[in-house]
Design a protein around this nucleic acid. Structure first.
Lengths: 216, 216
DNA sequence: AATATATTTCAACACTTGTTTAATTTTTGC
DNA sequence: GCAAAAATTAAACAAGTGTTGAAATATATT
């Protein structure tokens, strides 16, 4: 028995889809409420300012993702005890939930990640919400890596994380330039193919700077 | 004798700076012309529609960059003859001009790359201009890598390029999250530090998939 | 110097923007 | 069933949107 969707969610769904395509400034409240088949005033009534709608869109799935990713990382660390977790498993834990949802989570999730891809390169909008939810996880992730590579240089470590972040988020954007560049050789939507390659690519990048635990 | 700047360039400069901060939809023509200290009607007169202003902003520096990067890549290939160019030199050729301009080119260039960082994750806006100028270079770059790694798998190669592209453009965005995450350990503006790390990171990533020429 | 072309100005266009107000309807708790 | 609270509607707000047209000025060409 699926009850009728509440107005709040109708608005968030519509906003999510539109923000993904045209960005925050490229979408008007009337476009959102029209798509949601709802009166424009309800957006203000339920959320307040336009930016608050955007924040609500971000928040909704960030909570889910955050729980999932922390869990995966913890599992991976626990499994390896008393040794530090292997690097490629840490990176897999960091990326898997994201790519999986992006690939198999349906249209809503795909839109959500498209927004993240924009925001990650545009700090003014990501703002508090994103930092609040993703920075703690990033720190946890970096701690896990450090446990694996105790002699790692701080700056090296953070830049490597930065590169990972960039490679990952560009993938979310769903750009089809890959397709064009490869003359159609790549099915850009097959995110399993991405995951298979992203993890070893990034792992190798990290290892270029630091010898992992157990190797000399 | 520096002649007074022409209106066209005044508009482009202002547009460039504003687009970098708030994106295409977040900037109005009146904001641009006000910043340029110029009548709003002049924007239409000189460029046409708003999108045409944006395209002109993109075009102006794309031409310069394109020339520079092709030259660097060709030099690097010529130097190595008759052998294929070393992988890290190819990647350096691909990134150096960009990071250098972004770092030492002044405010205009920094704005320009911030726009690219947004566009790279947002195909609707990048559109024809960017593909037209950057795709041919990307192909040249991939050819050079293939010469180095003749047995490289096509799909692997293109995904690796994708990761490089993501890591590179995120760097352009000038996000300061790195700073926050590292508790201020990283000076995010020091792009020399980026370059020192980006090239080995990416090189290692590529090599994870393909043995370079000469190594077995 | 006179003509032709290019540029600039100012005002206005019709339309959309985010947000608010007050009246009305629906839902809730008792 | 009744009162209180929540949700929805419709209309309006001032401000800003991209773009255009015609008149005025500056520049270039002969």
């Amino acid at each position: 028995m699926t009850t009728k969707k509440k107005t709040k969610d109708l608005i968030l769904d519509a906003a999510e889809e539109l923000f993904a395509i045209r960005g925050f400034y490229g979408v008007s409240i009337r476009q959102i409420t029209t798509k949601a088949d709802v009166d424009p005033a309800l957006a203000s009534y339920h959320f307040g300012k336009k930016k608050d709608i955007f924040d609500a869109v971000m928040l909704r799935r960030a909570e889910i993702l955050n729980r999932e990713r922390i869990q995966t990382l913890d599992d991976c660390i626990r499994r390896a005890k008393p040794n530090p977790a292997p690097l490629h498993e840490i990176i897999d834990a960091f990326t898997h939930a994201l790519l999986n949802r992006s690939n198999k989570g349906g249209k809503g999730w795909r839109s959500y990640f498209a927004i993240i891809a924009q925001i990650n390169n545009h700090p003014e909008l990501g703002g508090i919400i994103m930092s609040q939810y993703f920075d703690p996880l990033a720190k946890k992730f970096l701690q896990a890596i450090r446990a694996n590579m105790p002699d790692a240089n701080d700056e090296d470590l953070y830049w490597c994380y930065h590169f990972l972040s960039g490679a990952l988020t560009l993938t979310f954007s769903g750009t089809e330039r890959i397709n064009k560049l490869s003359d159609g050789l790549c099915a850009s939507s097959d995110l399993d193919a991405v995951h298979e390659r992203l993890v070893p690519f990034i792992t190798a990048g990290f290892k270029a700077f630091m010898r992992p635990f157990g190797h000399q």
